[in-house]
Computed example of a mutant assay.
Amino acid sequence: MAKKIGLYFGTFNPIHIGHLIIANHLVEFSDLDEVWFVVTPHNPHKKKKTLLEDHHRLAMVRIALENYPKLHASNVEFDLPQPNYTVNTLAYLEEKYPKNNFGLIMGEDNLKSFHKWKNFDVILDRHSIYVYPRISEGTVETKFDNHEKIKTVNAPIIELSSTFIRKGIKSGKNIKPMLSAEVWQYLDEMNFYK
């Protein structure tokens, strides 16, 4: 039986409760059967000293999702040629899992620039896009209004970012409630972001 799988792309540096709330909401209150957290690999051509190594970010995602049977960690992009584009990842997944239907999960802030993505029209032709609300400036491209492949999901608005968490850790703030207990323990033991 074909499964509907939502792909939630991100660096997850680190994964936080906002990510979990949105993914869990989508899998429980939309037609998605599962959500896969696709951990974006470090771009070797970009120096980002705040970005943890790929395997650490993947480990944290796996730890965070242990108690959520409908949520899964994916390192599918780690082995794809870099720089990689979402359209390539989707083509690879379609070939590898032909029985599954893959959709994209994105915040409405990302939908605003979606028309600039490589082969966005191909993505939209072949895949649904699940859009969750964000507090943001400006308006979404009107060409996407009432588009049959774009599904707006009334998920909770979470204004929590990995950047905020990293800055909080660096300045010695208690950010423990923003992460799952297991992810916090992993970060703390590894002395990450300090």
Rank of each mutant, 00 (worst) to 15 (best):
L104P: 00
I165F: 04
L7N: 00
L80F: 08
H55C: 10
T139D: 11
H72K: 15
F114T: 02
Q82T: 11
T142M: 12
V122G: 00
F164S: 12
L104Q: 02
R166Y: 00
A181M: 09
V140E: 00
R57A: 03
T163Q: 08
I21C: 05
E189L: 10
K149Q: 15
W184M: 11
E34Q: 09
Y92E: 09
N24I: 06
P14L: 07
L71K: 06
N154Y: 11
N154R: 11
E137K: 09
N24K: 10
K149C: 10
H127P: 08
D188N: 13
V76T: 13
K49I: 14
I21L: 11
V38E: 01
M106S: 03
E66Y: 13
E28S: 13
E182G: 03
R134E: 04
Q185H: 11
E66L: 14
L104D: 01
D188Y: 13
V39R: 02
K3I: 04
I21S: 03
W36E: 12
H19I: 00
V27N: 01
Y68H: 15
V153R: 04
K3P: 06
I17A: 08
V61F: 07
T11G: 12
L52R: 10
I105L: 10
H45Y: 15
D121W: 09
P69Q: 02
L32E: 00
E28G: 04
H147F: 11
P41C: 03
T142Q: 15
D31E: 13
T11Y: 12
L7Q: 02
D125F: 08
